[in-house]
């Protein structure tokens, strides 16, 4: 079975969460738990690096959108920093890129946070 792998590392006040693998509906709770744990600790500036993500289901998008709205209420944000072509197509189709900050690399996303 393909799974999703989530690793995170802090960079200053920003947490970089790398999501890789295959995120079908069954794998969505892993991302939810990882993000919720960070938000609970008070981290509200998160960069999601989706470079290694082959596929994200609409439930996965829902999980990301829900968390973005949550941290935005506290003055933070979750920005996408890097994506695969497949994921970009999904984000684009969905209109995600029009509403939420999506950048081609994590460095760019970090820069936008720091700006």
């Amino acid at each position: 079975m393909k799974h999703v792998e989530i690793t995170n590392q802090p960079k200053g006040k920003i947490e970089i969460v790398k999501v890789a693998g295959f995120m079908d509906m069954a794998e969505v709770p892993k991302l939810e738990q990882a993000l919720d744990a960070l938000i609970k600790e008070g981290t509200i500036r998160i960069v999601l690096d989706l470079t290694g993500l082959e596929y994200v289901s609409s439930a996965g998008l829902g999980a990301i959108i829900g968390r973005i709205r949550e941290v935005r209420r506290s003055g933070g944000d979750i920005k996408i920093g890097g994506y695969s072509e497949m994921v970009y197509n999904i984000l684009e189709t969905f209109g995600f890129t029009q509403v939420f900050d999506t950048y081609t690399s994590r460095e760019e996303a970090i820069q936008k946070f720091e700006a």
Binding site: I65, G95, V99
Partner: peptide, 16 residues
């Protein structure tokens, strides 16, 4: 172009 219903304010939604 168009954004999914329920994730953006009406202005952005309509604009897109």
């Amino acid at each position: 172009t168009g954004i999914a219903i329920g994730i953006s304010d009406p202005d952005t939604f309509d604009l897109m």
